[in-house]
Design a protein around this nucleic acid. Structure first.
Length: 174
DNA sequence: CCCTGATTCGC
DNA sequence: GCGAATCAGG
């Protein structure tokens, strides 16, 4: 794969947006993260602040609403909470709005923790990321859960249950 | 072990 | 110019 003008432009754009080299490589396709870094240097693009060691890129805060089906006839309060966590390639710092009614609807078992989606695109999935699709594939917003899938399953703990458990198990558990 | 960017150097 | 290997760090 050679560096066409389009690919170079895309590289510049994504790099300036703060995506990591590996993420850019995934989106461009056909190149390694080393190739991306090498190209960045050759283009004399500004490196990441903090010379001499990998400072993680600042991932832009993505405020998203959890638009899940609302439980009817339930008074729903919306709480806002800020969550920060290091998730492998991505520093996630997002303000999330949680509809309490939605939480109940999707987490009927007291032991289940609803994961926060890493919002990965198809090319960013690895062998240990949850491949549960989120949203409408025809929409821009479409992404995959991307949480740690614990090696055995293609899904994370939560979505594995979603995938393999019949709906009626939720009733029984309660 | 996962990841990050930086540098080197044979091609 | 390119990028794998390597380094150095979180």
């Amino acid at each position: 794969m050679n560096w066409t003008d389009e690919r170079v432009e895309k590289l510049k754009r994504l790099w300036s947006e703060g995506l990591s080299a590996s993420q850019i490589a995934a989106q461009l396709g056909g190149v390694s993260r080393n190739a991306v870094i090498g190209k960045v240097h050759r283009l004399s693009l500004p490196g990441r602040a903090k010379a001499g060691g990998g400072t993680s890129a600042a991932t832009r805060p993505a405020k998203r609403q959890t638009s899940a089906p609302r439980a009817p006839n339930y008074a729903s309060r919306v709480t806002t909470r800020t969550v920060t966590r290091q998730a492998g390639a991505t520093l996630l710092k997002e303000e999330i709005e949680i509809d309490t009614a939605t939480e109940v609807a999707y987490a009927p078992s007291r032991n289940v923790v609803v994961p926060i989606s890493r919002r990965l695109t198809l090319t960013e999935l690895t062998e240990r990321t949850c491949k549960w699709p989120v949203g409408d594939p025809l929409k821009e917003d479409f992404h995959f859960c991307g949480c740690d899938s614990n090696e055995a399953s293609p899904y994370c703990n939560f979505h594995r249950k979603m995938a393999y458990q019949p709906v009626n198990e939720r009733r029984k558990a309660r």
